[in-house]
Design a protein around this nucleic acid. Sequence first.
DNA 1: GACACCGGAGCAACCGTTTGCATTAATTGG
DNA 2: CCAATTAATGCAAACGGTTGCTCCGGTGTC
Lengths: 348, 348
Amino acid sequence: MPATIRDVARASGVHISTVSRTFSAPHLVNPETRVRVLACAEDLGYRPNRAARALITGRTHNIGLIVADIANPFFPPLIKAAEGQARHRDYHVFVADTNEDQAAEEELVHALAKQVDGVLLCSPRMSNSLIEQVSREVPVVVINRQVAGLPCVMMDVGQGARLAIEHLLGLGHRRIALLGGPRGSWTNREIRRAAGAAARAGGAELTVLGPNHPTETGGGAVADQVRRSGVTAVLAYNDLMAIGLIEGLDALGLRVPADVSVVGIDDIALSRLTRPKLTTVATPTAAAGRTAVDMLLQHDSDAPRGARGRVATAGDRRTTAQVMLQTELVVRDSTGPVPPPGRDGTGA
Amino acid sequence: MPATIRDVARASGVHISTVSRTFSAPHLVNPETRVRVLACAEDLGYRPNRAARALITGRTHNIGLIVADIANPFFPPLIKAAEGQARHRDYHVFVADTNEDQAAEEELVHALAKQVDGVLLCSPRMSNSLIEQVSREVPVVVINRQVAGLPCVMMDVGQGARLAIEHLLGLGHRRIALLGGPRGSWTNREIRRAAGAAARAGGAELTVLGPNHPTETGGGAVADQVRRSGVTAVLAYNDLMAIGLIEGLDALGLRVPADVSVVGIDDIALSRLTRPKLTTVATPTAAAGRTAVDMLLQHDSDAPRGARGRVATAGDRRTTAQVMLQTELVVRDSTGPVPPPGRDGTGA
DNA sequence: GACACCGGAGCAACCGTTTGCATTAATTGG
DNA sequence: CCAATTAATGCAAACGGTTGCTCCGGTGTC
């Protein structure tokens, strides 16, 4: 039913190759012919079939974006930025959600591999070796993780965690908890490392609680552990957990920041809307999305898959850039000075 | 580089058609041959190229999902549900975001049309006639809107709005504002119609403010108008606006629900996390996503596009079902009895 | 005036599958 | 023992484009 290139060729009295060139290499066709062909195409509502084109060019003009959980407000800004950047370059983005599940992640990336020119792996939960294996099948840019030899876009959460801990130290806190995120998260390891170092340097004690599911529920679930641990401040793996924790503490009769200070990470839109407003580490998610797309597309224009003729890649010198984006601490209302003794809610 | 069907054929010493059948019609191939072929395929890491298959079968096994704004927490649960349902049936979902922009929406749906077997139009901002036009190009299921002759999945926001207004009436409110949503939204019209009728029936006065951008910012921006209008209760187009409004009222020194009651619509996860917790109309978003996928896929299996041979569709009797899902009112803390006179903040 | 050159268009092979039909061998019925 | 089925496989034509090559007529150059 939809018009094909042949219909247009017939209607305009030229060969299909001329029609093809009218779209993909206009300078090779006589202006008069071109306008005639374009008119016919318009008339028939012709649109080139990208799948068919992909078959021979080896480029689908689609990119895949795999995220752990669309419902986590951390991701949408990244997705939107990636989509916008991709659209500029005439690419479409295939977004898929793994539900924080490693197996689903692997399956998805394989299923996607053939229909896209490259994949953005955002906050992958897979092992590094699995990621490397995947990257031999399809070009990959990794977001929120460092994998040697692969292009990566990272946010400097280590620095962010350090700033957060120093902020807490400055307020007098010496017993601090770290609310860990999901197993397999690179970000989680970075935060832990940096927060540990910063706490040690400041002579504070850092209790690690986790791993936890990186959602409000996950945050709320550890409220009781936090109370029992007797800490006066908490750095959470992300804002969602921080917000859940505040909620949970509230239910236990502990006030934030009067009794406990809480810092999140991500600076999602929501963190400005809760009461108290969340002190958090802002991560440049939109920039990460844009950068990742750029890296993938540049990377990718070197060596269209299935290119015939030339034996491709004059030297495998693809510069596998690794970009680290800066983070910053945003101080709002969920952190305050350490409470006087006896108010710490430990029941002592 | 990636293995093709020919490589597998060569490796296992059979014709490519046998390999093809091994995957798409296993019962037609000898069990012994089958295991040999499968072994070779496994060995070479062969995966059928869906684009090539799509070319001849006319079915891409992809579906498109177009939403107004991924960053609006209303959509992710719907997206996840749709993805899950699609995955069950070996389909993938192409999510795209229009930024609430009508033109982007139209462009996207055209770009997507050829690479998917059908499109889920979620909360479209296009005109009905444009939607009908699009539906001639590619199978469409419309979510959150009623379009005659097209399969639609709707949530009964009209009923929800009525319940909300009745709830407010029951609390004694007689001067109520409706915070309108974006232009072009069917949901918006439904709410307005139902809320108007319910208010009239209860002898209350309903002031409509809008249209507005359906975000926190949009909600916050009308806080001042709300104050000046002297109403004691507000029904917002969605939770995001309600939350923004509460925030904005707070900045003006008006407390919710003491001075003004606020009701949202959608029951996004966030509405349970703000203080006060939001009274809102719960919409069954996940169910809508699942239902829409089912309708599209059923609908769609009738008539594979580009089917050759048979002249397709023995009668165009595709039952264009229109499903209306029920909503319910969730009463939380943002609504309360009408304040005594003199406390209404109008400055009188 | 012969020759090289160039712009513009056609030809045909190819991308990786699917699928109707032809072919062959094996099985069954009479 | 022969004809008729049936099971398993091969053959080749699509699907809708792209692209290297060839072909043709016209222009510029010496």
